[in-house]
């Protein structure tokens, strides 16, 4: 089968934090799309599998000046010196040059978890348990995505199954490129607030590229120099400082110990 995408794309997202109320629809849609199993009975927020995780973060001020923001964190799809790619001993992680998407091959993964230690965004998840669905529920799995087994690492891949399906549809229509909006990850589609915009950052005219250039846009841990492809938008200055030093000070107050 030929790959219809000739032009090099750089898929990315802009997430408007001012529109996110942490409803969780994106997390749900993500898990359904990608056959992520329900939590094991003993799983916690540190052993669960959430390819997209929405964190709540507050400004540390007292009531009533306390303000929170919900931050959806998928894999940030680092574009430069991608931390998880170079560390994998057996090439289970790669960056697709045609799309810029950081891919994870669970079939190749040995489960050493070195990539998890390498990822500053904690966007990688390990299968601590066997994937188990309640009886019958395995009938509701997505045929475009294979399930994973115990002992391997998995993460967001911008809904790879959807990209393939979109390419097949395009090829069937005799096109070799995807039109904007033809390929959209499940979380983007599911967001009731339309807080997530997805598209090709290389396409200067796309909405995602336009939003990413806005002055309210920022990326998390930008100074690490890994060129993530997830941009965040906010008009709240305290949130924007997420990528700057001051926040590191502020967060100390929130954590006790």
């Amino acid at each position: 089968m030929t790959t219809p995408t000739q032009k090099k794309s750089r898929y990315g997202m802009v997430i408007d934090l001012d529109r996110c109320n942490g409803c969780g629809a994106c997390m749900m849609a993500c898990a359904v799309e990608n056959n992520v199993p329900p939590a094991h009975r003993e799983a916690t927020d540190r052993t669960g599998i959430t390819w997209l995780r929405v964190y709540r973060f507050n400004n540390g001020l007292k009531f009533p000046n306390n303000r929170s923001v919900f931050v959806p964190v998928p894999c940030q799809q680092c574009g430069r010196e991608t931390p998880c790619v170079s560390v994998c001993p057996q090439q289970a992680v790669d960056v697709d040059p045609a799309t810029g998407v950081v891919g994870q091959m669970p079939e190749r993964c040995l489960g050493c978890r070195y990539c998890m230690a390498a990822c500053p965004y904690h966007a990688r998840y390990f299968n601590w348990w066997d994937a188990v669905w309640p009886p019958g529920m395995e009938k509701t799995l997505n045929p475009d995505v294979s399930t994973r087994m115990r002992g391997v690492v998995e993460k967001c891949n911008f809904c790879h199954g959807r990209l393939h399906a979109a390419r097949e549809r395009a090829a069937a229509a005799g096109r070799d490129t995807l039109q904007p909006g033809e390929y959209v990850p499940a979380c983007v589609e599911a967001c009731p607030a339309r807080a997530i915009v997805f598209g090709d950052l290389n396409d200067e005219t796309s909405e995602v590229a336009r939003l990413a250039r806005r002055p309210e846009a920022f990326r998390m841990l930008e100074q690490l120099g890994t060129e993530p492809k997830i941009y965040y938008l906010t008009r709240q200055s305290w949130v924007r400082k997420v990528s700057e030093d001051e926040v590191q000070m502020a967060r100390k107050d929130q954590t006790h110990g």
């Binding site: 170079s86 994998c88 057996q90 993964c109 040995l110 390990f126 391997v152």
Partner: peptide, 17 residues
């Protein structure tokens, strides 16, 4: 996590790692 695949490192080595 998958000791049976330990040999993958020899089979598909990532020389940058």
């Amino acid at each position: 996590g998958q000791p049976l695949r330990a040999w993958f490192t020899f089979w598909h080595p990532n020389v940058h790692s």
